[in-house]
């Protein structure tokens, strides 16, 4: 997921009876499916958790530009180039919407960048894997965006108004992303033997990291329980992962590709697939900064930010000068 293992301060989820009247009223509104809006009262932990979750989601979008951005200049046709550029541009837009949503909670975008650049804030583990071939662009759209959509669709109904509205916009724009990825995979898997091998190799490398996107099982997690009580998380990690596998496996079959999991098989009794366990040691290492591309990704973000300081300052200075000039001519006219 684009926001993984978001922590709350909760030790356990309290019942309505245990809450003070203000918080009880707040929780009852959420239970009734109402939206919480920026200036309304909210528990401090709700606010902080949302900042963590939304900013992590935003960081994932802009760091997520990098692995795919890698291939914009190498896209194999003019149309593919335009489509990929439009997609990566959308991710910048989604990051922008999400940062704005988080800003309504009392943190600035620059502060969030600072947290990203210092390594304090996390972003999705998935973007720390390299894009080694053109098929990786297909696999990311198909698998990574496919996984993200599973989580983002229900978030359109989450309890925090600005976040929910940002997700509505994002989901609307994002629907072409998964399709473009699958389209690339389709062409490759029906192409030359080299192209098909390229597609299989991409699936082999992206399958497990995609399953890890949902995070480890959180059935026992108090943070997840609290987030669900607040309606800023709707499904458990395992539920989403199951849904993702069940949706994706037939698509892989259609492509004539093999999902790299020997344990994968249909379980008639449960009406879903059984599948193997991702390597959580690898997941935690990637989260801790030890993935194949963590350093490159953060370095690229820091460089863009630092190299752009003069530009942002130049525009600020000009806006100040213009305002002063207008003020002066207004005074002169009076």
């Amino acid at each position: 997921m684009y926001a993984q293992m978001v922590k709350t301060e909760a030790k356990r989820v309290r019942s309505l009876d245990e809450m003070e009247p203000q918080e009880r009223a707040f929780q009852q509104r959420i239970d009734a499916g109402q939206k919480i809006e920026p200036k309304e009262w909210m528990p401090e932990d709700y606010r902080k958790t949302l900042i963590r979750q939304i900013s992590q989601h935003a960081h994932s979008e802009i760091v997520g530009q990098l692995p795919e951005g890698n291939w914009i200049t190498r896209a194999p046709t003019l149309e593919r180039k335009a489509i990929l550029l439009a997609k990566v541009q959308d991710e910048a837009g989604h990051g922008l919407y999400l940062y704005c949503a988080a800003e309504t909670l009392g943190i600035s975008r620059d502060q969030m960048y600072e947290q990203l650049h210092s390594g304090k804030a996390k972003y999705s583990s998935i973007f720390n894997y390299p894009t080694l071939s053109w098929a990786d662009i297909g696999a990311i759209g198909w698998l990574v965006d496919g996984a993200a959509i599973m989580n983002q669709v229900p978030l359109q109904r989450c309890s925090y108004g600005p976040y929910a509205r940002a997700m509505v916009r994002i989901c609307k724009e994002e629907s072409f992303h998964q399709r473009q990825g699958f389209d690339i995979m389709t062409v490759l898997s029906k192409g030359t033997p080299e192209q098909k091998a390229m597609a299989q190799d991409a699936l082999d490398r992206w399958w497990w990291p995609s399953l890890m996107m949902f995070g480890p099982s959180d059935d026992a997690s108090v943070h997840s329980a609290q987030s669900m009580a607040w309606n800023i998380k709707q499904d458990s990690n395992d539920e989403l992962r199951q849904k993702f596998v069940d949706q994706t496996v037939p698509q892989a079959t259609y492509l004539g590709l093999t999902v790299p999991d020997p344990a994968l098989k249909w379980n008639e009794a449960k009406g879903g697939h059984d599948f193997g366990e991702p390597d959580w040691t690898e997941f935690f290492a990637v989260i801790a900064g030890e993935g194949p591309c963590n350093r490159e990704r953060l370095e690229a973000r820091r460089k863009a930010w630092n190299d752009g300081a003069w530009f942002r300052d130049g525009l600020t200075a000009h806006a100040g000068k213009q305002a002063a000039r207008r003020q002066a001519s207004r005074i002169a006219a009076e």
């Binding site: 530009q65 914009i72 003019l78 335009a82 541009q89 910048a92 990051g95 530009f311």
Partner: peptide, 28 residues
């Protein structure tokens, strides 16, 4: 398009990509 993901501000990243997209469309 080389700037995509590396521009000095998100708003500029998006704007320059729009220009690039227009130019690629005109190329076609």
């Amino acid at each position: 398009s080389e700037w995509c993901g590396h521009a000095p501000a998100l708003e500029e990243d998006i704007a320059l990509a729009n220009t690039a997209l227009d130019l690629i469309g005109q190329t076609q």
